[in-house]
Design a protein around this nucleic acid. Structure first.
Lengths: 337, 337
DNA sequence: ACGGTCTGTCGAAGCGCTTCGACGGACTAT
DNA sequence: ATAGTCCGTCGAAGCGCTTCGACAGACCGT
């Protein structure tokens, strides 16, 4: 391995000079700088990460904790993770991938060992056990998701409350009065995942304001689960004409089942989904949907974090405004018979 | 931050003793060991990663390069990544997430800086530009996927050739003579992704041996693309009764379209998919499928790598044997009219 | 009782980098 | 001309750990 000292010798300067050329923390004359840079290139020098971290107590690594479970939103997580990684690189940071498995211990380990300079947490629960740890450390962090108590925390998320409201509004405007919500798997609600509850909250309160009837049913993905759920929905509320779906893997089953039952979309029933764009446009009916802006979320999270690392950040909650795109799956409510 | 020296002082021993307690590289009397461990716990000591890396030239980090593109197999990638991360942790390693974006430079950077001790590469192309670099370094690496020339490389992958063969055999045994292959998106073939070409290879050669007619069509995901592809298939080969699908996002569209055309599955046509279990069981017809053993691949890759790091590994290609699970989407070929 | 062998512990020398203070020289202001 | 400034560079200290050689003391065989 080529070392700083070797570069220095090769360029005929001292080691500290090379270091300053690299960091730009002191002014260096153009001639020396060029000479040093030439030596670096010639020798193929790469600074040793460990030594750097030790001397500067900065690892230039951001830890990203992703949930272990894969029961939901996998493509979204992946998209966020990739956006985080690429954005971080443009700022000179690398990403350390932590799974939720270790739980709070991972936070301790990473903070304690100086492995990472900061962390991003995904899939935050409303009352997440990692939060006290984050508040108790001076290591910057950003959450993707929104816990119930955000004091002292920086969060980035889609405004799911507004998302729910938006879906209801859209259907209301089209004249639908009975709306069914096909939610995430029951487990998601049981563990109090913020986004699921907040969406529901937005749906409910807006429905109340607009005097709509709203029926919420959690639903595992897949056909069988969807079939059972759908049967119960029409059993309880035969007049249901509007659906809001917040479970990617229930979207296609729902469409197929409706078709099978002879209910046309959007003539008889309208469907609004909360899902990635790709799912919305690739479905058998192009779906009216609110997109989850995964890329944007990842990017923003990193930017917030970098700002904090540079001492400029504040503890701030960034809620991205939802956007509803009207496609072929929603239309005017049928006239009541 | 608590340091080794502080722990040593607190326990009344020298720093090196603490270090040996931690590493177990020299024998330590039980009494001292317990005392040191107690101090560690009491002070909440975590070894500094940078210092450790510098002194030992071992970072205990494995780099994982995932592809940037998300045009295929996202859930599979995610599953592999998570399996890699959790397996690595059980061996005391962390995962550094690299996206394909940087390309070969990422390899240089990581090897050069000692950021990671080893690397795992996903989404390897048949003639990948990163391979010469890997061969030219003494940093251990494992590929998930199979390039055309594997000399000097360790690879882990599903045996896609056998997978292709297995699918054909299954359909042949059921009496199907005309088989259509719905492949990955054209782009996947254009960049010579190993698994796609090898599957095709297996399909073709086994079909030839069994004297079946095989028609291969690449296909983007989604309904519209699938509809176009399907039309062309039946146009060219009206007697097609067997389908092999190797594109998750074409599965559901295919089933819906067949249904729509009045072709019953499995009475009129049989469908075999190469996809994750979850997709197979959640589809509208429970699919006969060959599963992509993502977890297993991730786990094996890490284990190979750890073996190499411990100096026991060899350059070996591990091909996991495919397993076909018969479900509801395949059955005897209809009697020719 | 004596050298020889273990066992458990310590001290010290780095690992490769950053960073602080120092310092010569060129320049400005008086 | 002289003191004060600034610029560009250097030397040295030290970041927290690992690891090697050394060395007391316990234990063995003879």
């Amino acid at each position: 391995m080529v070392t700083l000292a070797e570069v220095a010798q090769h360029a005929g300067v001292s080691a500290s000079t090379v270091s300053y050329v690299l960091s730009g923390k002191r002014s260096i004359s153009t001639t020396t700088r060029l000479r040093v840079e030439e030596s670096i290139r010639e020798l193929g020098y790469h600074p040793n990460a460990g030594a750097r971290a030790l001397a500067s107590s900065r690892s230039n690594i951001i830890a990203l904790m992703i949930p272990l479970r894969t029961d939901m939103y996998v493509p979204v997580m992946m998209e966020i993770a990739i956006a985080v990684a690429t954005t971080a690189r443009t700022h000179g940071y690398d990403i350390l991938l932590l799974t939720g498995e270790e739980g709070p211990d991972a936070v301790r380990r990473v903070t304690g060992s100086g492995l990472a300079d900061a962390m991003i947490l995904m899939d935050v629960e409303l009352d997440d056990e990692r939060l006290p740890l984050l508040r108790g450390t001076d290591q910057p962090s950003v959450l993707i998701g929104l816990p119930s108590d955000t004091t002292g925390l920086t969060c980035v998320d889609l405004d799911f409350r507004a998302t729910g409201a938006l879906c209801v509004e859209h259907l209301a405007k089209l004249g639908h009065r009975d709306i069914a919500v096909i939610g995430e798997a029951p487990a998601v609600y049981e563990r109090h995942t913020g986004f699921a509850e907040r969406t529901l909250d937005g749906l409910r309160s807006r429905a109340r304001e607009l005097e709509l009837r709203l029926l919420h049913r959690p639903c595992e993905g897949g056909y069988d689960a969807m079939a059972a759920t759908l049967a119960r929905v029409f059993d309880e509320r035969p007049d249901t004409t509007g659906f809001v779906v917040q479970n990617e893997s229930a979207v296609e089953p729902l469409l197929a089942l409706l078709r099978q039952q002879g209910r046309a979309v959007p003539e008889d029933v309208s469907v609004v989904a909360v899902c990635p764009e790709q799912v919305a446009v690739q479905a058998s009916v192009r779906l009216t949907s609110v997109a989850v802006p995964a890329q944007e979320m990842g990017r923003r999270a990193v930017e917030q974090l970098i700002a904090k690392l540079d001492g400029q950040g504040s503890d701030e909650v960034v809620l991205l405004a939802p956007e509803l795109t009207v496609r072929a799956s929603s239309g005017p409510a049928p006239v009541r018979s």
